[in-house]
Design a protein around this nucleic acid. Structure first.
Length: 325
RNA sequence: CGCGGGGUGGAGCAGCUCGGUAGCUCGCGAGGCUCAUAACCUCGAGGUCCUAGGUUCAAAUCCUAGCCCCGCAA
């Protein structure tokens, strides 16, 4: 399917509306602002009470937009009266959508001549959904990337316009990979717009049979089930760093685990999963369902995030203690 | 006023309930020991106990206000 009503070249600067909300969308908006096209309006989620004290916070995209004196629109719902008219008033040629946070109604998809183009943080059709970055790491992928696509009514199922691939480094976390893909996504968006203007855009339908899903992460997804195997846990810990973060409990208190490695040397009588198997001044080894995990960076509830050696100077743990009990 | 934990030599912590000599695990310096180890032994330096008031013969500890860090929640 192709919604492109004008496949011919578009020699003039485009009038763009940008829809996006979190940090991931910031490099994309920044790139558009540096380009020749005109960002005529920005749509972002309403300010939300958040953080300690529940203070009202503006989304990162709004902060950038305001700094550039752009028109900012923050509708609570896209289907409420007046939203469509407001968007139409900007007379966009194209709407760029990067992590806006809500599905777009058909009326908006059809609102501009070039439709809505989205940047998604995976190599579609793999990892459709809200948390593609984290799940790519958690699933042990060696590489991932970004995809620009033409938005359709089904989530992340639109025709692919352009893809960029990146290798997942051994030490990449959800956080570092997020930052890399945010930048890569901005590049992909810029190049896609160039293709639009030169009339060389090719839209390729996704292979539905190959689609996989990366569901929204919930806090609970971070809870460590020590019965899983060490490799799996190590990947999840890496993927969920810094958010939602993998966690267990220590003496009834929340203990976040930000980094851990699979431990190869295995003491023989294997204690039950979650049991502290070995403690040295610089390491903490925990039994899992299969293999052992050496924790290397942790944070106890109310305290700072610490390398394990620092943590152990203040908390004298002994083998036999069970985590997550 | 969303809920909660915390600020103590360079690091991480205890001490606070029940005011009265600054403690633990490290790190750092000097020396010793060892084939060797994130090893061991001896000695040593280093602290306005977040800040400002208050109570008291006496405050890290009790009271008040403020600043900063963090967990939950969103």
């Amino acid at each position: 399917m192709s919604d492109l009503r004008s496949p011919s070249p578009h020699p003039r600067p485009l009038r763009l509306v940008f829809m996006g909300t979190p940090e991931f969308a910031v490099p994309s908006l920044q790139t558009l602002l540096e380009g020749e096209d005109l960002v005529v309006g920005v749509v972002t989620q309403p300010d939300q009470p958040s953080g300690r004290g529940m203070v009202l916070h503006a989304p990162p995209v709004k902060v950038l937009a305001v700094a550039h004196h752009l028109s900012v629109f923050q509708p609570a719902r896209l289907r409420e009266p007046g939203v469509l008219a407001s968007l139409q008033a900007w007379q966009p040629d194209l709407i760029a959508v990067v992590a806006y946070g809500k599905m777009l109604p058909q009326a908006i998809l059809a609102l501009s001549p070039y439709g809505c183009i989205n940047v998604h943080a995976s190599l579609l059709p793999k990892y459709r959904g809200a948390a593609p970055i984290q799940w790519a790491i958690a699933c042990g992928e060696r590489e991932t990337g970004v995809t620009t696509m033409h938005i359709s009514e089904r989530m992340d199922a639109g025709d692919i316009l352009l893809q960029k691939t990146i290798t997942i480094a051994d030490d990449d976390t959800g956080g570092t990979l997020h930052d890399k893909l945010a930048v890569l996504g901005a590049e992909a968006l810029r190049e896609t717009l160039q293709l639009v203007k030169s009339g060389q855009l090719v839209a390729q339908p996704q292979d539905e049979a190959a689609a996989t899903y990366a569901p929204l992460l919930k806090k609970e997804d971070g809870r460590i089930d020590w019965r899983q195997e060490a490799d799996t846990l190590a990947r999840r810990i890496r993927a969920f760093n810094p958010w939602p973060s993998a966690y267990t409990t220590l003496h009834g208190k929340l203990l976040k685990i930000f980094a851990a490695q699979r431990e190869r040397s295995i003491p023989h009588p294997a204690p039950p999963p979650g049991t502290v198997a070995e403690v040295t001044p610089v390491s903490l080894v925990v039994a899992t369902g299969a293999g052992y995990l050496t924790l290397s960076e942790v944070q106890l509830e109310g305290k700072k995030r610490l390398p394990i050696a620092e943590f152990l100077k203040g908390y004298h743990l002994t083998p036999g203690l069970v985590l997550g009990a």
